[in-house]
Amino acid sequence: MNEINESIGLEKKSQVSSPPTGFQVIAREFKKDKLAMFSLIALITVISAIYIWALTIDQQEMMRVSLRDKFAEPGEKFFLGADQGGRDILGQLIIGARNSITIAIAITVLTGILGIIIGLCTGYFGGLIDNIFMRIIDFFITIPSLMIIIVFVTIVPKYNIPIFILILSVFLWPGTARLVRSKALSEGRRDYINASKTMGTSDGGIILKKLMPNLSSILIVELTLNFAGNVGIETGLSYLGFGLPPSTPSLGTLVSYANNPLVLSEKWWVWLPAALLILFLMLAINYVGQAIRRSADARQRLG
C-alpha cells in the first residue's frame, strides 16, 4: 500500500509524467537495496581514502630496507607489521592499492573506448565489417589469453607500466565489444532508429545520439564489472610476478610474498590484509555493478 502511495506521490510531484530515466532509475535501485548503497559508499570512502593517504606517504622512505624490523609484528611501530625487508606493510598496502586501482581504471577506460566503438559500429552497420570483427573477437575469446599475456610480458623489451596496460587492453577489449555489439544489433532494428534513418539523420548521429544513450545503462554495467575484473587480472598477474614492474608495488605483489610458505603460514600480516582488500574491492565493485544491472532491466528492478 505504501509503495502505491509513494508512486502516486511521485506522479503528482513531477509536472510532466515521464518514466524515470537514467540515473534516476539507478538512484532508486540503490535506495531500495541497502547492501548496494553500503557497498557504493564503502567503495567511494575506501578508494578516496587510499588516494588521499597515498599522497602523504614518502615512497622512498617506506621502501628503505631495515633488517632490524624484519617481519616485525603488527604493533606500535608498524600498524600492520613489516615484511622481510622490514618495510611497513600498511604503507605498501596503500601505495599498492592506489597503483592497482589506477591501472584497473586505465585498462577499463582503454578497453571500454575500444570495445564500445567497435561494438556499436559492427552492431549498427552489420555486413562485412561485422563479419570480420566477429571472427577476430571469436578468436580472442577462444585463445588462452592469460598465458599469452604472460609470454608477452616476459618477451617485451623495455617493459613498463604503459606497455603492461596496452598488452592487457589488447586482450581484453573483445569481451566488451561482443556484448555491446549484440545489444546494438537488437537496438538498431527498433522503430525509432528506422524512423531516424528515414528522417535523414546521419549514421554517426544515430550511433552517438540515439543508440548510445539507449545503451548507456548497459555500458555503465559493463564498465563497472570490467573494472572489477581488471582489478582481479592485474593483481593476479602481479601475484604471479608478471604484472607491475617490481619498483611499483601492487596489491598482487604484497599477496605474492605468501609464495614463501613461512610467510604464508606464520607471517599472515604480510599478505592477508592485501588479500582481504582485493576481496573487498572485488565484492563491492561487483555488487554495485549488479545493482546497476538490475536497474537497467525493468523486470529485475527492486526499486
Binding site: 572489477a228 582481479g232 593476479g236 604471479l240 599477496v255 605468501a258 582485493i278 576481496l279 561487483n286 555488487y287
Partner: peptide
C-alpha cells in the same frame, strides 16, 4: 567475484 588466487591462498 573472488579471484582464484586469493581464495586458493
Amino acid at each position: 567475484a573472488i579471484p582464484v588466487f586469493v581464495l586458493a591462498l
